[in-house]
Amino acid sequence: MTRDDLIRRIAEEMPGISIPEARRLILLFVEGMKKGLNEAENLEFRRFGVFEVHHRKARTARNPRTGASVQVGSRRSLVFRQGKVLKARMKNLTKRTI
């Protein structure tokens, strides 16, 4: 499923929402979520999951090919943790595929 599929589904199922309007809304959803995460805030959606911003310290790494030391700066990473309900729903998939 892609962003375009989601746009189409919203326009199909939500009364009074056209495709261009659904596209505008999805872009705003994504923009809003990114804005929060860029401000290093976690995003929490009940029943769905949490996006957590993790901070990685600067470290000295090695170029695996040459063995030379390289300084890697501090960076942020993003971790998604499924919510309870989503986790429970994924069990249905496990049941179906076993």
Binding site: L6, E13, F29, R47, F48, V85
Partner: peptide, 10 residues
């Protein structure tokens, strides 16, 4: 609409 968006993903 946002709930529906998350629901479609889930």
């Amino acid at each position: 609409i946002f709930d529906f968006f998350l629901e479609e993903i889930a």
